[in-house]
Design a protein around this nucleic acid. Structure first.
Lengths: 209, 209
DNA sequence: TAGATTGTTAATCGATTAACAATC
DNA sequence: TAGATTGTTAATCGATTAACAATC
């Protein structure tokens, strides 16, 4: 096992996702060539990526599929489940609270927070919704490290500040704004609109003429 | 204006998003250095990215902020609004239907489709929800090119097939599965769980020891 | 053995960075 | 003019690809 580049890291979840898609009829073995073809990548690239995180395959046979899955999962840290809190129980927030598959990837959203008292009455798929005032106490007490922001754009920065104050180390931000935070905090912006712009651009280039 | 690399294309929406975040007090001018610092990129990198899509800045002054925004928007194709349909009006689907900012980036979700007759009664933020059976007719009639999939994982492939059959050219897939489609169709997988795995990995690496 | 597939080493390609000249 | 900032050219860096040796 050796060091993994940024690009490889980006592709690893795709391999895992593809392997999972083969369930429940998981073939006992799978070759880098198979995977490459399915995902439209180069064969050598896949082999190199897998070599970086797996125990290795066998010539002629390929990789033991189950082992490969386990290795990729392990590398991505899907083993050690991280608890997270979510702020903003609007439609997107609710969607994430019920999204299938986070747990599979090592994330457990343990609670949600919202400023609207009316939302707080219900719990979403077994997760309670608390007042934003309780955020700090909850995070401190439960040693939460990941926060998810699904509030409107204009509320995102104050929420970010609150999360940092609550001891959060990494933030997954769905609000379409650029957040400022002190240095050691890790922020991943999931700007869906921006992400779409790239699709749209590709579309134009591919089919324009 | 010259050719734009994959990486530059990925960063352009971030520049746009940052510039938007300065509103409503948009400064008349802005330098590549300013932007670089705000986003944590290299100064030269930003300058090169912007040079590729903008009319150019002025030494000492920087770029005219409004012009720069317009240029980036234009390059990303945010000018020509694309109509899209969404299949699967569950929580995530509803969230996307009401998501702020898609229109700003050139996407207009004009209708949603769902297999559940009960969901169909209401419309979400002015958008009607139709039966999946009407998908083909609607897309053909309205010349829709983009489809968004927000159904559960096990329903995604049939929906994908339907969309292709309806003449859709690009698909934005939120279901955590790997979709198969005939060659010319453009598929962008938005696997939120996978995307999260990368955040989680960074977190471990940054704070582990 | 022959064929398939792995992993490695070297060559190519592309993107980032550094240095610098140009300009307001 | 001096200083800030742009854009360009060349050098560096990193990732992908190609060729090949190793192995089951």
């Amino acid at each position: 096992m050796r060091s993994v580049s940024q690009q490889t890291l980006q592709r690893l979840p795709l391999y895992l996702s593809y392997l999972k898609s083969l369930m429940p009829d998981l073939p006992p073995n799978i070759s880098a060539g198979n995977i490459a073809q399915a995902l439209g990548f180069g064969e050598v690239q896949v082999r190199k990526d897998l070599a970086a995180v797996s125990a290795g395959g066998r010539p002629k046979l390929g990789f033991v599929t189950a082992d490969l899955m386990a290795d990729v999962k392990h590398y991505l840290g899907c083993d050690n489940i991280d608890d997270a809190v979510l702020v903003g129980a609007g439609k997107l927030g609710k969607a994430l609270l019920t999204y299938e598959g986070f747990f599979e990837y090592g994330l457990d959203i343990v609670a949600a927070f919202d400023s609207d008292p009316n939302v707080r009455e219900k719990s979403i798929s077994g997760k309670r919704i608390y007042a934003v005032e309780d955020l700090r106490g909850f995070c401190m007490e439960n040693n939460i490290r990941i926060g998810i922001i699904t509030v409107p754009a204009d509320k995102a920065q104050p929420v970010c500040d609150r999360l940092v104050d609550a001891g959060i180390l990494a933030i997954w931000n769905f609000a379409p704004v650029h957040l400022k935070s002190p240095d050691p905090i890790l922020i991943r912006n999931e700007n869906l609109a921006a992400s779409l712009a790239i699709l749209s651009k590709h579309l134009v280039e591919t089919f324009a003429k």
